[in-house]
């Protein structure tokens, strides 16, 4: 009888403690992948204005009518710039040949002191202390005698690869 009393007392105490405090847990893992900070902004379109039939019209990268882009990424970093020009400007079913001119770049917004890329498709360049790299692109077009009137457009695409 003595043993039974002791057993019951012990078991009740033990069960009380066990049931009273139960702790369970689970863990969720978290992930996040970071791409290097970079943005490219179009600051200006390339504008040839009104063309004179049979006359070459050229917009140099240093001209105010040139296309202008701003890349902002890591500071003082070598980047690879690739520029794709349209082969033709298009107006409905009509086309006009587009001729590329090597674009230029600078770390400040000043085309007059910019450096020309080695190729019309771009090349390597270095961002400035604020991560900026300005790029200007021009081109040459000519409306032939039979060119249909209208607004001709094309797309200049820029890709900047930052390591």
């Amino acid at each position: 009888m003595k043993y039974i009393k002791q057993t019951l007392l012990f078991v009740l105490l033990f069960c009380g403690i066990s049931i009273a405090q139960v702790t369970v847990s689970a863990t969720a893992m978290g992930t996040f992948s970071v791409l290097g900070y970079a943005t490219v902004t179009r600051l200006a379109d390339l504008d040839f204005g009104a063309l004179i039939v049979g006359v070459n019209t050229t917009v140099l990268p240093t001209d105010a009518q040139a296309a202008e882009f701003l890349f902002n990424g890591n500071v003082n970093t070598d980047v690879q710039v690739t520029i794709t020009f349209p082969s033709d400007l298009i107006c409905g079913s009509n086309t006009m040949k587009f001729h590329e001119i090597s674009p230029i770049y600078n770390t400040i917004p000043d085309a007059s002191s910019a450096t020309q890329f080695k190729h019309t498709s771009g090349g390597s360049a270095t961002t400035g202390a604020d991560g900026n790299l300005y790029i200007w692109a021009g081109g040459r077009v000519m409306a032939n005698k039979n060119q249909a009137a209208g607004q001709y457009t094309g797309i200049i695409q820029i890709v900047v690869v930052q390591p």
Binding site: S25, M29, F32, V34
Partner: peptide
């Protein structure tokens, strides 16, 4: 802005105490 491009991880642990 200068965060290195790579994969980052962490964990969250939920514990229930009755």
């Amino acid at each position: 802005r200068s965060q290195r491009a790579c994969k980052y991880s962490g964990s969250i642990t939920l514990t229930v105490h009755t």
